[in-house]
Structure formats: structure tokens, C-alpha cells
Design a binder for these strands. Structure first.
Lengths: 352, 352
DNA sequence: CTGAAAGCGCTTACAG
DNA sequence: CTGAAAGCGCTTACAG
């Protein structure tokens, strides 16, 4: 239907040179006289030539694309705005450089390994961004065995040949605990993510460290799968305790919001009877009543830097780890001083 | 580092035939004797041969990938679980067929057109899935001019050569209105999406139709950009009315949740003073207190069917539009009969 | 500085 | 049924 697009052969003929020279000129490589170069560039412009990624891919053994494999329950991913914002951030770097993002979502870790293998066997991507690092992450040996490039979000707990883009969760969690302590809370719980996930673990560690520093009992920790449903379950558990917490530090916003629901349903006021902090700063948290005190990270920037680092690595540039500003506490309305009533040990029976 | 992977040339040599024959055998094309075929297949298996997507792409002029371009504010996308779930649905079809998804997120419509052009100029994708159809959508003429394959979510309001995967929003919205009418509401408002977006328009039309059928005033309609912030703004506006609504039908869940926040902040109880319905059935809605009455659609299935239809189209199969079960109302706690207090015309000043 | 050629790994007419 | 060859659109030594 549309006439066939011009190739470098057409450009070469128009400029009266060989294909090889055209390639050199078009790729800004040395060894082409200025006049010839401009003649070639002019010809290519006149013909409306644009490089064929496929031809280039085959001969240069590159795909000009980056991969992102998300191996989590879609429902959890969906209620976490992190990925979407992160992807938007990568796009800011990729698009101007003519790179694309290949996205895979898989429900479990078996399919995850297959997906990485397939991505590289097919030469779909030149490198991958590793998110949600796990303890002793099996992707590291897998990817090094495949001989591929990667960048990790956060530093792995095992030997890794890949650069990392670091964003420290710790300060945000510590500030959240400190904020609650200053408000007068002494029974503070933590609802965290899976212990197998590094950022879940680091948030938990920060919680425990800060509680210990404040000479408070740091043992009120419940592990979840990061879903709102599991956050609700954990909250019920905590509110059912004889000596229930007056504040809960959650590891993400959707669990915090679900937790508020559970508390309210059990007849507790937020923040009067229970203070709540989240993590992520999702948009809806700003519009709740009470609005959600939370910990914010710059997911957009994280995405941009990760893409940037990986692209440099692929280009053969030696890159160091890069550190982003740490997570920071955003105080809103879901935290307050504990009420007198809630200071007295109670025995609320949390609704389901 | 790893030894070079075998090519069909290696397989040909091992099987003692020509490369061409290998290609025929490997692609299940007729014209290869059974014995030769098995000999070739065996050789390829022994060598661990796997096709090179790049070689195949160049010679067959296919990319074996589908594209999805999302041209919306990342923040709105992030608070809407639709895309994530939809993508997970496409993946269920793509992965087993060795296809990949190339995802682009762009902030505005100018970049959007460039992105589609680039995707095809680079031969990144064999077709695209068109979501968020707009009135008189400029992507339709663009894509037909580019001569590419596509599938649309919903039916465009202009001539379109592409098949559609249909999921009717109407019944869900109509049932929501009907549900509120049956509860005794007479002042019901609608907070909708951008009028330029077809599904925003269709939800609005369904609202108006059902209100009219119930002989109620259908004029309480506010348009938004689908963000939680704008949903809050619209709610403030409605609650500031002299004759404020006792129920609001929102066009998505995040606006509904923000709307509940605004109502509560203005001293109104939900559902006692204001009933609220959402759209999408995001996970967090189930865990709020009160839990959110909403309209659910099967985004996962929508994704699968869209990918399936597009893949068939690309394979040269003639495909018809496919219809999915319509959106359905999910009644939870955010709707109830209007309280006596709220039936009396009041003059609440909504806090911002 | 420039040309002619081989090669990347496939597919696909064209002969036999 | 099978082989030998050309071609997809680039890149990259190798000569000159």
C-alpha cells in the first residue's frame, strides 16, 4: 500500500557512494570526509530514510529495548501505583533514545525464570531492570549465567555484578516511628511485606531499630503478602490483642487503607483510637478522610535513573551505583496523639 | 562467554540437508518427506537449536510483538487498576505464543501520535491495542494511514476497519441508578470522565437514560479528568448545591473514594447522608468502611480477548467483533436509603 | 578517505 | 521431495 521505505542502498546510490560508507556516515563514525558526509546525510534526508531496527538488530546483535518482568499477583500490582509511576519514569529516558520497554507480567516465580530466558533467547532486550529484590534472589545467578546486563533496584544481599539504583526506605520508616513516638504512642505495630522481599525486610529492620532506639517493644510485627486483603487480616489480628497497638506502621498504602477500614469497622476512630501510616504515597491517600500519613518515594525518578544506568551499562560505560534521596515521611491526618481511652488496655474484638 | 547458539545452518549440516529444507521442516510447511522431517527435527533438538527472532523478523517482516500506548497522566493511570489487570490479561495469551508486549506511556496526545509512528517505523510491533477510545479518535486515521493492524476496546464513533472487543458499561451504570432509585433517592448526580472519551460518554449517556426513565432530573452531571483530585473537586461542587444530591454515581473508584472523603469532611455520613457508587471494582474498595458499592468489569478477560483477536487478525484470520459480559453492579455498603435529614433540602457548605 | 564484500539468521521463490 | 541461491537491511573488517 505505501511505497517501500528507502534503505541504505538507496541512499548510497543517491549519494554515489557505497552502503558501507553510508552506514559510517549515518552512525557518526570517523573516517568519512566532511563533504561526503554531508552529501550522504542530505541524500538520506531527501529520501526520508530512517534506519531499519530489524536490519540493525540482526547485524549488531542488539535489540534496543529494555525488559521489565513483574512476577507478582496482578491484583497486588494493580493496587500499588509504584510500577505504573516507575514505568512512566523509564519512558522518559527510553523514548528520546529510541528505546522501547518490553513488559512481562507473570503470576509466579517458575514462569518468571522462563520469561527471562525467553526474553534473551529471543533477543528481545539488551538488559533488564530487576525490581522487588528477594533474599538470595535466584535471578542473579540466572542472569549472570545467561550473560546479560541488568540493573537492580536496591542492593542485593548476595554477590552481584550489576549496578544498583538505591533509594533508602529506612529514613521514611524511622521518621514514621519517631513521629508516632513523639505523639506519645508506646504500643506501635508494623504490618510488613513478605520477609523474602528485601525492601520488606529493610522496612521491618528500620522499624525494629527505631523502636529499640526509643526503648519500646519492637515485637509487634506481622508479615503479609502486600495485598489489601492480607493487610486487613493482619490488622484484625493486631486489634484483637489484649494489649492492642495504638498505632500501626504499614509497609504500603493499600494495606494501610484496608487497615483503617478494619479499625473503623471495629468501632475505633482513626486517628483518635488508632494512628496509621502508609508507604508509597498513592494519590487516593491524599483524598481520604482522614488523609493518610505516609512515606513517599520518588518512583518516577527511580524509573528514569534505572533506565539511564542500564542504558549506559549496555553502551559499555562503567557505571557506579546511584543513590536517590531517601524515602521521606509525609504527615497528614491519620496520625495523632493516642486518646486517653486507648491508652487504657482494652480488649476490642476486631470484626472479621 | 557462552558458546554461540546453533543456527539453521548447523542443523542443516547435521541433518545433511539444505538450510531451506530445515526452515520448511521447522515451520511445519508441506513439501518435506516424513523421514527427512524427523531427521531435521531430531538434529535441531540435539543441537538445542532455537529460532532467532531477529533473523526471522528481518526476513519475514514481522516483529512477533504487540504494542500498547497509554496516553494519560501517569498519576491517573496509577490509581486505576484497569491497565495493570488488562495487561496481565494480554500476557496470558501472548506468553504461550512467544509474543511480547511493548508498552509505552506518554503524557499527552502529541507524543502519542509520534509514539505510534515510531513503533511502526521501527517495526517494533505487528499491531496495537487501542484503549480509551476518544470521540472522533485521531488514532484511527493515523493507524490506517500507517497501514497497521489494530483492535479497539469498544466501538469507535467513526468508521473503523478494525475489530472491537466490546464490554458494555451501560448495564452496570443503569443498575447502579436503578439500585439508588429503589432505595428512595431522587436527587442523584453523576461524576463522569472526560466527555471526549467514549467510555466516559457512554457511562454518562446510560446515567441520563436511566434517570430519565425513572422520571428524575438527569442534569446533575459533572465532568472530570478521571483523577481523584478532580473527583474531589466535582464532589465539593455538588455538595455545595442548594439542593444537593443524596447519591452520586462516579465513573471510577478512585473518584468515588475521594468523593467519600469530601463528604465525610463536610460532615456528611456515607451512606447515611450520601450514597456513593464507583466503577472498576478496585481491590481497596472491598476493604473500605463502608465498603464501596461499585460496577465491576472483567479487565483480565478483556485483555486476553483483545490480544487474541489482534493475534488472529495479524495471522490473516478474518475476525468479528467479540462481546464480553457487560459491566455488573456490585452492591456493598456505600449505598443506602437516604436519611430523613438528607431528604430535607439543606445548604451544606462543602469543605474544599 | 572510500569501495567491494562478507556476514548476521532466517525465509522464499526458482529449478530440478 | 530437495538443493542452491537470493534477499531482508543493516554493520564491519579488509583492501586499497
Amino acid at each position: 500500500m505505501s511505497k517501500p521505505r528507502p534503505t541504505i542502498a538507496d541512499v548510497a546510490k543517491a549519494a554515489g557512494v557505497s552502503k558501507g560508507l553510508v552506514s559510517f556516515a549515518l552512525n557518526d563514525r570517523p573516517g568519512v570526509s566532511p563533504e561526503t558526509r554531508t552529501r550522504i546525510l542530505e541524500a538520506s534526508r531527501e529520501l526520508g530514510w530512517t534506519p531499519s531496527l530489524r536490519g540493525r538488530s540482526l547485524s549488531s546483535d542488539k535489540s534496543f529495548a529494555l525488559g521489565l518482568v513483574i512476577a507478582r499477583n496482578p491484583e497486588v500490582v494493580a493496587s500499588d501505583s509504584f510500577y505504573t509511576t516507575f514505568i512512566a519514569g523509564t519512558e522518559k529516558i527510553l523514548a528520546p533514545q529510541g528505546r522501547a520497554l518490553v513488559l512481562s507480567m507473570v503470576p509466579n516465580e517458575i514462569l518468571e525464570a522462563d520469561t527471562y530466558r525467553k526474553l534473551f533467547a529471543d533477543g528481545r532486550v539488551d538488559g533488564v531492570i530487576l525490581t522487588d529484590l528477594r533474599s538470595n534472589d535466584n535471578r542473579l545467578p540466572l542472569l549472570t549465567a545467561l550473560g546479560v546486563q541488568a540493573v537492580t533496584l536496591g542492593r542485593p544481599d548476595v554477590e552481584s555484578p550489576y549496578p544498583s539504583v538505591l533509594l533508602d526506605d529506612g529514613p521514611g520508616i524511622r521518621d514514621a516511628v519517631q513521629h508516632l513516638v513523639e505523639l506519645g504512642h508506646t504500643r506501635i505495630a508494623h504490618v510488613g511485606g513478605p520477609s523474602g522481599m528485601l525492601h520488606g525486610g529493610s522496612r521491618r529492620a528500620s522499624f525494629i531499630a527505631q523502636m529499640t532506639a526509643a526503648r519500646l517493644d519492637p515485637s509487634l510485627v506481622v508479615e503479609t503478602d502486600f495485598s489489601a486483603a492480607d493487610g486487613a487480616r493482619a490488622t484484625s489480628e493486631l486489634l484483637g490483642l489484649n494489649d492492642r497497638p495504638t498505632a500501626i506502621v504499614y509497609s504500603n498504602d493499600s494495606m494501610a487503607i484496608a487497615g483503617i477500614g478494619v479499625a473503623r469497622r471495629a468501632g475505633l476512630g482513626v486517628p483518635d483510637d488508632l494512628s496509621v501510616t502508609g508507604f508509597d504515597d498513592i494519590e487516593i491517600g491524599r483524598h481520604l478522610y482522614p488523609s493518610l500519613t505516609t512515606v513517599a518515594t520518588d518512583a518516577l525518578e527511580w524509573g528514569s535513573r534505572a533506565a539511564d544506568v542500564l542504558l549506559q551499562l549496555i553502551a559499555g560505560v562503567k557505571v557506579d551505583d546511584v543513590s536517590l534521596p531517601p524515602a521521606r515521611l509525609v504527615i497528614r491526618e491519620s496520625t495523632a496523639a493516642p486518646s486517653v481511652r486507648s491508652r487504657i488496655p482494652t480488649n476490642h474484638t476486631a470484626a472479621r
